[in-house]
Amino acid sequence: MLRPATAQDLDLIKALWLAEERYIDPPEPLQIAEAAEAGLLFVWQLDDAVAGFAALKRWHPGVFSLAAVVSTKPGQGRALVRAVQAQVFTALGGHRLGLDTTYDNAKALHLFETTGFIREGVMRECWQRPDGEWADCIFMAILKRDWQP
Results as ranks from 00 to 15, higher is better:
residue 91 A to H: 05
residue 146 D to V: 01
residue 66 L to A: 06
residue 61 P to A: 08
residue 125 E to G: 14
residue 122 V to D: 05
residue 37 E to D: 13
residue 98 G to V: 03
residue 91 A to F: 02
residue 37 E to H: 14
residue 92 L to E: 05
residue 113 E to K: 15
residue 35 A to W: 00
residue 95 H to S: 11
residue 127 W to Y: 15
residue 96 R to F: 09
residue 124 R to C: 13
residue 80 L to H: 12
residue 130 P to M: 07
residue 14 K to A: 14
residue 84 V to I: 15
residue 140 M to D: 08
residue 83 A to K: 09
residue 100 D to Q: 10
residue 146 D to I: 06
residue 122 V to S: 05
residue 148 Q to M: 12
residue 88 V to I: 10
residue 115 T to P: 01
residue 32 I to D: 01
residue 55 A to P: 00
residue 62 G to W: 05
residue 68 A to K: 04
residue 45 Q to G: 00
residue 19 A to I: 07
residue 49 A to E: 09
residue 23 Y to I: 06
residue 70 V to N: 07
residue 39 G to R: 04
residue 113 E to R: 15
residue 120 E to T: 02
residue 30 L to Y: 13
residue 80 L to C: 07
residue 20 E to D: 09
residue 59 W to F: 09
residue 4 P to R: 12
residue 105 N to Q: 13
residue 21 E to T: 11
residue 39 G to Y: 08
residue 137 C to G: 12
residue 70 V to P: 05
residue 60 H to N: 12
residue 118 I to N: 04
residue 98 G to R: 04
residue 101 T to L: 10
residue 87 Q to R: 15
residue 80 L to M: 07
residue 111 L to A: 09
residue 2 L to S: 12
residue 111 L to P: 04
residue 22 R to Y: 09
residue 56 L to R: 04
residue 55 A to Q: 14
residue 68 A to P: 00
residue 68 A to D: 01
residue 109 L to Q: 14
residue 70 V to T: 07
residue 86 A to I: 00
residue 44 W to F: 12
residue 23 Y to N: 14
residue 12 L to G: 10
residue 147 W to G: 11
residue 80 L to T: 09
residue 103 Y to F: 12
